[in-house]
Design a protein around this nucleic acid. Structure first.
Lengths: 221, 221
DNA sequence: TAGTAATCGCCACTGAGTGGCATATTACTA
DNA sequence: TAGTAATATGCCACTCAGTGGCGATTACTA
């Protein structure tokens, strides 16, 4: 039946101290088992007690790794946003800022590894069929905007409260992402056969959204 | 101490059937008492049982009026978004679409009555100091985007999945709102003396954000 | 005034999330 | 290598938002 059994002893850096390795394994086990259970039975139909029982961890421990039930399901997205912010922070910002934001997003997306892609596809599939996860995902993108704005403020040495454009750029970048992601969903069938080129298709959709920004402003009837 | 006592028998259309009048009064009493309690003790420090007890209504009934604890605190915002969508639906869309979206927003905002403004200011004050409400408010704005897109699709007879620009326009309109609202917050001190011109200031901030959109796209270092 | 439909109250229940403290495990140090 | 400090985990009881079901009220209608 719902025998999920996820091997936890995978891909953990040997050089790390034992404690850190264990933490990584627990985290991975929680994510993998959660994704498997959620996909099998639906996000709402799985209780935390169920998940926690499967992984053989206490509920208390779960909340030391994730802040909410939603977080464990969308961990892959969180990783992407962390990478995005990181990429922007270590980029030099010259020329058109929106172009830089766009390039950083694409770069972060392309920098994620194969295993991330697998989890990310599962996450997006769940988001697509779970309103609560959709909300959580959207909120994450809004929070990412703020982080981008903070990053821009530091790097450009400007104040977003004096120059609204900085904040607007955050809206535009993540807005393009949201539009692109939406269009991507309808163009992809989430079948169990892991389709190749999913990430490339997503990138394309997001780029198309960025491309359409100038045209949307001038759109007339 | 926390004796909130909100008079419920206020401003209810006499021509309405008794049942409808009662429902309106219950709704108003819930909103007013909620705002008073939340502002006095903080959103998180007030339990629904407390609120429900104060209004002398069962918790079950509360959830027949509002879908969540957050909803009763942000009811004024919801009213604004309903008005916005309504305004857009009954506007003819000619010329630049973003300009139409902007005009409809401003028009909806200006069309709200004095009592709404009072409640809206209370709501925004709560949002400003309550993360959970901030999240809920942001989600509402995202959902409003979708409603705008739906409205545009119908009125323009286009498909947002074929033309990304439609969706982007939703992002832009509500993005400008979010930016404007943020800048408005810092420019206003929410003191108990209800400052005049708050709404006008908000409108100004939002308009400034709209104005800054073209410039944000071309912003360079 | 009887009948019908909407609304409400009550009550028991689920499930996410938290606080506190005892216990176990890892890391550091003499 | 023994002992100790630091950190991670388990356990348990608890709060509180939100739901389902059903019987009791209350308002409309003929």
């Amino acid at each position: 039946m719902s025998h999920v059994t996820v091997d936890a002893k995978v891909h953990v850096d040997r050089t790390l101290p034992l404690r850190e390795r264990k933490k990584l394994r627990t985290r991975q086990a929680l994510i993998e088992t959660a994704l498997a259970l959620f996909i099998e039975k639906g996000f709402d139909a799985v209780t935390l007690d169920e998940l926690v029982d499967e992984v053989e961890v206490s509920k208390r421990t779960f909340f030391r790794y994730f802040t909410s039930k939603e977080e464990v399901a969308t961990a892959a997205e969180t990783e992407l946003w962390d990478a995005y912010v990181e990429t922007l922070l270590s980029a030099d910002i010259t020329g058109n800022v929106l172009v830089v934001l766009r390039a950083a997003l694409v770069s972060a997306l392309e920098g994620m590894d194969e295993d991330w892609e697998r989890r990310f596809l599962a996450t997006r599939s769940l988001i697509g069929r779970t309103p609560r996860l959709r909300d959580h995902s959207n909120l994450s993108s809004l929070k990412t905007q703020e982080r981008l704005v903070d990053a821009l403020e530091k790097k450009l040495n400007v104040d977003s409260r004096e120059d609204v454009r900085i904040r607007l750029l955050g809206e535009l970048a993540l807005g393009a992402w949201r539009c692109g992601a939406k269009n991507w969903v309808r163009s992809v069938r989430f079948t169990s056969r892991g389709g190749r080129g999913n990430r490339a298709a997503l990138t394309r959709c997001v780029e198309e959204a960025f491309d359409a920004i100038p045209g949307s402003i001038t759109l007339s009837t």
